[in-house]
């Protein structure tokens, strides 16, 4: 059963499952503690500064693969002792992000920023700032309340930046939390855009003073046990599944409701009687097939006709076949008439005008009456009229009787 349809097979709003987007993906680290002579220090006890221990960097032990492994071990990525480091995660496609969470092996940074890209890493925009000193580090006020006019803007918060716990601390960001329109997310294009990303970057901008940590400067590194990113494929409410593409590639929306495109962001060919819309819980906004009476497989959408019809139908059939014409292929082409013994969808609409008795191949679309030459009669102009008789001339087939 596909959740995109109810028990009566009526279309309904649907979403792919929330999934762990970082799981199994490679995170690119700008700096990694990857061998001698580097060394880093950490704390065994989250509350006891005296539990400090130090160890040398090893080639494979601290790589960024450890950020997204899920083997249950607390394996950590460690940066080189430095003031700045970044972690970048490519999601492969546009996703809707519900949370980003980092579990630290080191003390949490004094200042950390999360950025997102919507164009596969070409440009980046701030997603969230965390800092004990928002003004000084990011030139932003510490924010506790997000008003509607800024719900598509990154804010800086002071929470989650405390020195303790010294290990195991969490930094979590939920892009919708505290945003006024979050309860009506499905009706808020601004927030739908706000949570959309193709790539994420975490920038560790400043650590707490090494002196406070009881370390020398060259011993202080960022250490992260886990990077979790919760989200789902952006399918605009038209897919409940988003399986991995061929060869385990980029996930693809399994588009329903007669939609198509990487994000179910357009209507399938021939389903253009109404404009495409994102689904909402109130209305699935299913794409509707054009009505071409089975005489065409192609159509286009006209907003003008859609508005004129009271927003009911805007499809215009293209390339009507079987000698039909009109917006819905509902008329016969010139020279052809409908055989009313067959339904309008029948392919059997053929011209019945007599090749000699009629002046041409044109007939009345409603009655089927062909235009007859002088002295010729009948629906198809196939007989001489009263007082006329057949001649030998194909040009004047009936002549007045003498």
């Amino acid at each position: 059963h596909d959740p995109c349809y109810n028990a009566n097979q009526h279309p309904q709003f649907c979403l792919p499952d929330l999934s762990e987007l970082a799981s199994g993906r490679l995170v690119e680290a700008s700096s990694t503690c990857s061998g001698p002579p580097g060394r880093f220090c950490a704390f065994q006890d989250s509350a006891n500064p005296g539990s400090k221990f130090c160890q040398g960097c090893q080639e494979h032990t601290h790589r960024s693969e450890h950020l997204t492994d899920s083997d249950g071990d607390t394996t950590c990525w460690w940066s080189k002792p430095t003031a700045n480091a970044t972690l970048t995660l490519a999601l492969g496609r546009r996703m809707e992000i519900l949370y980003v969470a980092l579990r630290f092996c080191s003390p949490r940074p004094e200042s950390l920023a999360i950025y997102k890209s919507m164009d596969y890493g070409r440009s980046w925009m701030p997603f969230q700032f965390f800092s004990s000193r928002c003004w000084r580090r990011y030139h932003l006020p510490p924010t506790t309340t997000i008003v509607k006019s800024m719900e598509h803007e990154a804010v800086c918060i002071e929470a989650q930046t405390a020195l303790k716990p010294l290990t195991g601390g969490l930094v979590a960001f939920m892009p919708l939390a505290g945003r006024p329109s979050a309860q009506r997310f499905e009706y808020s294009p601004i927030l739908q855009d706000w949570v959309t990303a193709t790539d994420l970057r975490v920038s560790f901008d400043r650590m707490h003073s090494a002196r406070i940590l009881g370390m020398r400067r060259k011993e202080a590194s960022y250490g992260v046990a886990e990077l979790q990113v919760g989200g789902r494929c952006k399918c605009n409410g038209h897919a409940s599944r988003c399986p991995a593409g061929k060869d385990g590639g980029v996930p693809q929306c399994d588009c329903q409701h007669n939609t198509a495109g990487p994000e179910c962001d357009t209507c399938k060919t021939f389903y253009w009687d109404r404009p495409w819309q994102r689904a909402t819980p109130k209305d699935a906004h299913e794409c509707v097939a054009c009505n071409c009476h089975r005489h065409s497989h192609r159509c286009r959408f006209s907003m003008e006709l859609f508005e004129l019809s009271g927003r009911q139908s805007g499809g215009i059939c293209l390339n009507c076949r079987h000698h039909t014409a009109g917006r819905h292929c509902q008329y016969c082409s010139p020279g052809f008439k409908r055989d009313f013994s067959h339904p309008i969808t029948s392919h059997r609409v053929s011209c019945q005008c007599h090749p000699i008795g009629a002046t041409g191949a044109f007939c009345n679309q409603t009655t089927g009456q062909c235009q007859c030459k002088n002295g010729v009669t009948g629906l198809t102009c196939n007989r001489c009229a009263q007082g006329f008789q057949q001649s030998r001339s194909a040009h004047i087939p009936c002549i007045r009787k003498l």
Binding site: H354, Q390, C398
Partner: peptide, 23 residues
Amino acid sequence: DVMPTLDMALFDWTDYEDLRPDM
């Protein structure tokens, strides 16, 4: 009275070959 259908065989097609249907 129903008049008879035009008899294509009666026509002289000499000058109207292009009009002549396949019979």
